[in-house]
Design a protein around this nucleic acid. Structure first.
Lengths: 203, 203
DNA sequence: CGTTAAGTACACCGTCCTGTGTTCTTACGT
DNA sequence: ACGTAAGAACACAGGACGGTGTACTTAACG
């Protein structure tokens, strides 16, 4: 990863500066925040010339947007694609987050940048909606009466837990998970604690 | 408030510069964020010389801390001291927040400043704990089985709603209020809910 | 080989930021 | 009326920031 990735036969140019920049962004933006991380420091950490950075990204704003774009696959698919869990367990697994996680980078970016028009802010909105939609899908799979509502509720719990973890310096996800369990049980009519049967509830 | 406050007989010095500074802080910090509000702009809005500002506050950090300190009475007592409501109604009234509210300034400050050691961050922690404690008190008053847990849960809901309102640009408090209603009903031992009026419960 | 693109090193610009020094003016209380 | 302290006006230091210009070096590939 730190080494250049030589493609099969196609483009093999470059020595991976862009990757190093994004990698350093992930570390520094999360550790120090976006506004408190200057381009000079970032380039030094990435071992990349400042000039090179600005040949890969038009500006810091676009770099931040691209930095956020990198989170999608890991977070989204990490939980929702686990076939070893029942839908209900998957919903709860979304709250199994190590307390060391700094803060949802989308929340941090939206608050730090403070501009709803910023490309990163728009991406944050899209991401949050996507998570809620994924939760709703899983809720539907689990047989919830109102999947959209449950998805929105669980998404709110995740954000609340992330925020409180940051502000209070104490893990808020156990509390959120407890609430989630109540909501899930209330939303699934049959209260079949575990629907091990994978029957598609075509409704 | 905007006028100088002449004490009874004691100190009558000053023409209210400090008040104007704090007042302008409330407006600008909430509208634009803390980091994006420079001292020059703030002093101009407060119609205060920059030199005067730095004679009232050692630095911007302390000004921010004092700015946060101003929120305590209004927010805390605004909801919890309403004697016209039952304890249960008071818990739910905490979610009646106009959607125009920018964002809980404590969350914004903690995320923007990004330093847990910052005086404002410490104050934000204290405030969040105080709110949870107040909610727990009210929950106890309402007859909840585990008031501390319910207080913590409701506090998490409020923060989640505030965060999502900011990130998604859509009011998140109705969703949070719906969850709160479920939690409250689950936490108060069944029929013992202190509703004085049971008329339009189901409506 | 030579070409070409990617990357480096480094100085530099303009802007904004927090914070200070200095001098002058106002208003209050005695 | 006078002294004193709060405040105004204004320039300026010192640094961080985002971003650019320029000349040089490296590595891939024909």
């Amino acid at each position: 990863m730190t080494e250049l990735e030589k493609g099969p036969t196609g483009r093999r140019r470059g020595r991976g500066a862009r990757e190093r920049i994004l990698s350093a962004s992930q570390q520094l933006f999360r550790e120090q925040g976006i506004n408190r991380t200057g381009m000079d420091q970032l380039c030094a950490a990435a071992q990349v010339s400042k000039r090179t950075a600005y040949q890969h990204f038009p500006g810091k704003d676009e770099l931040v947007a691209e930095y956020l774009r990198r989170f999608d696959p890991s977070v989204l698919s990490g939980v929702f694609d686990r076939t070893d869990l029942t839908p209900r367990e998957r919903l709860l697994a979304a709250f199994d987050i190590p307390p060391t996680t700094p803060l949802c980078p989308y929340i941090a970016a939206a608050v730090e940048l403070h501009d709803p028009q910023h490309p990163a802010s728009q991406h944050a909105r899209d991401y949050k909606k996507a998570v809620a939609a994924r939760l709703a899908d899983t809720a539907r799979e689990a047989g919830a009466a109102d999947p959209e509502q449950l998805g929105e509720q669980l998404a709110l719990l995740i954000d609340g837990a992330a925020t409180r973890t940051r502000v209070l310096n104490a893990d808020g996800f156990p509390t959120a998970a407890a609430i989630a369990a109540v909501l899930i049980d209330n939303a699934i009519p049959a209260t079949a604690s575990d629907d091990r049967r994978r029957e598609e509830v075509s409704s």
